[in-house]
Design a protein around this nucleic acid. Structure first.
Lengths: 146, 146
DNA sequence: CAGTATCCTCGAGGATACTG
DNA sequence: CAGTATCCTCGAGGATACTG
């Protein structure tokens, strides 16, 4: 059952560098040398991780300039949907092992954008964004109360 | 900032065995040999991971019998609060790389509980649950519009 | 800049045997 | 059962040099 899922996810992003790379791309660090400088990772390892993440479909490799050729990495839809996990991870880390300042939680969100409505399950401890809600209500699996 | 948090969390639970151990303890697998049988991990590595997780405060080592001495591992409060992250991880894995049955997303949540209101940032792609909202509105960081 | 190629080290982790 | 001790291998990853 879910053991294989955990294992697959761990194999894909469950190492120090992959997670840090993903975090950096979320933050807007998108180029090879920027990532390298920011993370202090060796070229070979960074190259390997980027390749893996692109192959897995988490990142997208996009040339944005022809001459000289330049490349940037962005999050695919699949990669963007890692955000709930990253948020949960950061929240947990800030609360239990963070040395630094805990992430401030604002009604406007850290980027300043006004928050949209979403839903939260107090039993599962899971949040569902508007896209998930939309998908659920438009699909066959309807549960049309409040 | 949060790089250190990510790194610390990755260092603690960001490896294959630690994550699988935690998952098993969540499932109720609590004894050394049970964990070993279920995961197929070597004794030395399992011993090392359990020690690390206990030292970090994620697991609690509890002798439950004196003669012969027997031990079980359970989740500390800190460990229990990993559940949102695990759920997010499983949800993502099921959706994007799971071979098995994807978790259905319902307005009632997978456990049947009715969902509560939460908030979503369309720029950050981040969801904020009711506890976070409560904390934000009661703390100094107020942003009291809709 | 965005990598690839090569070399080298060190430590993670399996296998096995042993212990209270 | 719940580990510890020892040995051994192999591969991850850093450093450095090189390439289009």
């Amino acid at each position: 059952m879910s053991a294989s899922t955990i294992e697959a996810v761990a194999r894909l992003i469950g190492d120090r560098w992959s997670m840090l790379v993903i975090r950096d791309v979320f933050r807007g660090v998108r180029r090879f040398e920027e990532l390298r400088d920011d993370l202090g990772v060796s070229r070979a390892v960074l190259s390997d991780r980027l390749k893996k993440l692109v192959e897995a479909g988490v990142l997208v490799r996009t040339p944005y300039q022809d001459n000289p050729p330049r490349v940037e990495y962005t999050l695919s839809p699949m990669g963007l949907e890692l955000s709930p996990m990253l948020v949960a991870l950061l929240r947990w880390g800030d609360r239990w092992i963070g040395d630094g300042d805990p992430t401030a939680v604002l009604l406007h969100g850290p980027c300043g954008t006004e928050l949209e409505q979403a839903f939260w399950c107090r039993t599962c401890h899971t949040t569902f964004g508007p896209a998930a809600i939309k998908a659920a209500t438009s699909a066959d699996a309807r549960s049309p109360d409040a």
